[in-house]
Write a protein that binds this DNA or RNA. Structure first.
Ligand SMILES: [Zn+2]
Length: 238
DNA sequence: CGGCTTTGACCAGCGC
DNA sequence: GCGCTGGTCAAAGCCG
């Protein structure tokens, strides 16, 4: 039941009428594939974050309900107490040369070790906004399928993603914050899906924005497609 | 020159 | 204590 609303599948069915040049069409198709792949990953991410959030919430409830006077709490060995950890796997093909992952943030590599039960090394990254942002991640190829990268993220960013030359954002991702609920409406009116979970929608939105604005041409094409679709829809309504 | 990668050293936890 | 292993530091080097 919970995962009902966690379905950000923006199936836009963007059939851009007749695109005059085929080369960029294929290019767009490739990028669409890439983005849908990323969308899948983000889906997993949202799910993982949701479970993390529920776990954390339960933990906080327990903590606030029963505050044991035992202040002899040791410096928590499990430093992952507050930092949520989530792992994801992404398929990578031609970029087998480098282990740089484009996920919207900028990372600084600070280590690489070989692990025991995996022939491929593991790379350690820290967010470039350190130390203000404590996010870390590890990236390692899968043991069997070396074309699959397994990334383990730890913590959450406390800054905006470095959207390179952040221009005016396309209007279809509009955050209308009311009270404590954020609605992310990328559909025509009446189809607005509202959720009460602020954090995940925010993260989803910022990830979407970062991934979309990374390629301005694609964002433009998408925006035009959506606006065309909205216009068509509105016309059909009237 | 500044930020990043590379890469060996270093350290902490753990099992023996 | 010793050695193994995963995680981090930092010096050196690379690159725009
Ligand atoms: Zn960050």
């Amino acid at each position: 039941m919970d995962s009902e609303w966690i379905n950000p599948s923006l199936s836009l069915d963007l059939s851009i009428g007749r695109s005059p040049d085929q080369a960029s069409n294929g290019d767009l198709e490739a990028k669409l594939n890439e983005l849908s792949e990323e969308n899948k990953r983000l889906n997993e991410m949202v799910k993982a974050m949701y479970s993390n959030h529920t776990a954390l919430h339960h933990q906080l409830m327990d903590l606030t309900n029963s505050v044991p006077p035992a202040k002899k709490r040791k410096r928590m060995r499990m430093s992952a107490n507050m930092t949520s950890i989530y792992t994801t796997s992404m398929r990578i093909d031609a970029s087998s040369s480098r282990l740089v992952v484009r996920d919207g943030y900028q990372w600084r590599k600070y280590g690489q070790k070989v692990t025991k039960d995996n022939p491929s090394p593991r790379a350690y990254f820290r967010c470039s906004f350190a130390p203000s942002c404590p996010v870390k991640k590890k990236v390692q190829r899968s043991a069997e399928d070396s074309s699959v990268l397994i990334a383990t993220y730890e913590g959450e960013h406390n800054h905006d993603p470095p959207t390179t030359e952040n221009e005016s954002l396309p209007c279809f991702v509009s955050l209308s914050s009311s009270d404590s609920a954020v609605a992310l409406d990328l559909r025509p009116r009446g189809f607005r899906s509202e959720v009460e979970c602020v954090e995940f929608q925010r993260i989803l939105a910022e990830k979407m924005v970062s991934s979309l604005t990374r390629d301005p041409s694609f964002a433009e094409a998408l925006a035009s497609a959506i606006s065309g679709r909205m216009f068509q829809h509105l016309q059909a309504q009237s």
